[in-house]
């Protein structure tokens, strides 16, 4: 290419419309993503509003020390990672089962209806989910207790039972995302060469054998890679879900507090910025290390599936 040596200004002139078209997005990400990256120095400062990010006094690793010594670091990291692992396993398993069953389903209309039904929760806001939680689990009027009462059983006060929330969170995570993930796996099944199925049928394989020996082996590598790539996000809690389902119920923080809820709560209710900034930086760095490592491994195993 002779454009190589025509120089910077020539390139600039040639692509000026393209550059103008890129400009809004470039500025957007600069302001909302790159500038806050520079703001992470706040994790090493004692924030005061007047001084702002750059004028506040330095405190070294004070915020991190406090974050670790309060026991929060270990506690919320453990919760975040464990929840994400369970969500990943439960949701992916359900998604694969749903996708295989739907793909083989004979009735076209009932298949469409069922798929629509399980995809619907994806479209609902977490605030509405919190209305569901209120409707079902509220101690005085909840439909769960109504149901228990109609069988002559005692009411349950879920709000004071920390372990109950583990299952409620797992339930709603599956409820909201399985439909979405099923679409994903259905697309992967549709990508399997139909000739393979026909050949198997010709050889007398029944449907269970076909699923066992063709569909599953085709999906498992995709699933494994997907799971591995999700590992990068394993220290990131879904704030919207945790906040709307659990709310401000301090009784159950022990089992439900994740890094993201901790950060927002410290910021908005205690008006403390240094420690949550330290927690956020810790989260971002661990996440980046995980993504890069996992991506390196995926790249070695299956080059096409690597993210970068």
């Amino acid at each position: 290419m002779n454009t190589m040596n025509k120089g910077f200004w020539w390139e600039l002139k040639k692509h000026k419309i393209k550059l103008l078209m890129l400009l809004p997005a470039v500025i957007y990400f600069f302001v909302f993503n790159y500038l806050p990256m520079a703001g992470i120095i706040i994790a090493f400062k004692r924030y005061d509003y007047v001084g702002g990010i750059f004028g506040s006094p330095w405190v070294g690793f004070e915020n991190f020390r406090y974050f670790i010594e309060s026991g929060q670091l270990w506690h919320i990291t453990k919760n975040t990672v464990l929840y994400n692992l369970v969500f990943l396993l439960v949701n992916n398993l359900l998604e694969i089962v749903m996708a295989i069953l739907l793909a083989e389903m004979a009735g076209k209309y009932i298949r469409k209806f069922l798929q629509s039904a399980i995809f619907l929760p994806y479209f609902i806001s977490w605030v509405v989910v919190s209305a569901f939680v209120y409707n079902v689990f509220n101690y005085e009027y909840g439909s769960l207790n109504s149901l228990l009462a109609s069988f002559g059983m005692d009411s349950v006060d879920v709000y004071s039972k920390p372990t109950a929330w583990v299952f409620i969170l797992i339930f709603f995570s599956a409820w909201k995302t399985v439909g979405y993930g099923t679409v994903f796996y259905l697309a992967a099944i549709m990508g399997i060469d139909s000739e393979t199925y026909e050949a198997a049928e010709m050889d007398g394989a029944n449907i269970f054998q076909r699923v066992r020996h063709i569909t599953l082996p085709a999906l498992i590598p995709t699933a494994v890679i997907l799971l591995m790539l999700s590992l990068g996000g394993i220290v990131k809690g879904d704030f919207q879900m945790f906040y709307q389902i659990v709310g401000d119920n301090g009784l159950v923080y022990n089992t439900t507090d994740v890094i993201d809820t901790f950060v927002v709560r410290s910021m908005l209710t205690i008006q403390e910025f240094g420690m949550p900034a330290a927690a956020g930086l810790y989260q971002s760095v661990v996440s980046l290390i995980l993504i890069v490592t996992v991506n390196y491994l995926v790249r070695k195993a299956e080059k096409d599936l690597a993210l970068f």
Partner: peptide, 27 residues
């Protein structure tokens, strides 16, 4: 290069606190 400039923001972020301060105090 431009694509990576965008993509990098999904790999690393400053976290919620600097973003919040940026939005409230500076913008």
């Amino acid at each position: 290069y431009v694509a990576f400039y965008f993509y990098f923001t999904t790999l690393f972020s400053g976290g919620l606190v600097p973003w919040y301060i940026m939005m409230v105090k500076y913008l």
